[in-house]
Amino acid sequence: MSVTEMFSYIQGFLSADQDIREDIRKVVQVLEQTAREILTVLQSVHQPTGFKDIPSKCLKARELFCTVQAQIADLKTKFPVEQYYRFHEHWRFVLQRLTFLAAFVVYLESESLVTREEVTNILGTEVDREKGFHLDIEDYLAGILIMASELSRLAVNSVTAGDYGRPLRISNFINELDSGFRLLNLKNDPLRKRYDGLKYDVKKIEEVVYDLSIRGLAKEQEAEGDK
């Protein structure tokens, strides 16, 4: 093979690579749009009036997740299945956001932590890397941490909305999450930075609980909060 042939061959490869990336970018943009829509639905729980119909908002979000599944199914067709990490950077960010949204929905529904398996069910990804388009563990963890910060905001706004039991339940939940993260050995990477943010969320919620405690507002709803 001559030098020129070699470079033509490589150029062919590079073009193909660029086409793949272009395709991926387009699907990812659509995914981001859907993610923003889900966010808009869920954001309204922070409004004083939003606390009443959390279930209906969750349902609406669940519907939108069907769209997400279709879009991810589309995304999977855009590149060879075993080269996930070659193009990882393209969807890393949106998958973290979607994980956050899935985790938030699950929390609002059942006040429990979404498992990695549940997220893959909601998003329509694979559980195992070997099986194909999966959810990277660090992206899953990043999504969880985004939710933690949303929960600290929720704790604040639930007080404004007059729901004094929720903050304490959030506090318990987030504390357990914090204990979980303490088990991990993170590198000096974006995930580590995000995890540092969790400490502030824990602190913020602790302050809300403290505020309720000294005013005796936490006690009355204690029974309710136990659910």
């Binding site: 932590l113 498992t115 990695r116 563990i137 999450l177 204990s179 979980g180 991990l184 050995n185």
Partner: peptide, 12 residues
């Protein structure tokens, strides 16, 4: 939750 995170720890 803690059990899950122990798995994550090992994986990482």
């Amino acid at each position: 939750l803690i059990a899950a995170f122990k798995v994550f720890q090992q994986e990482l």
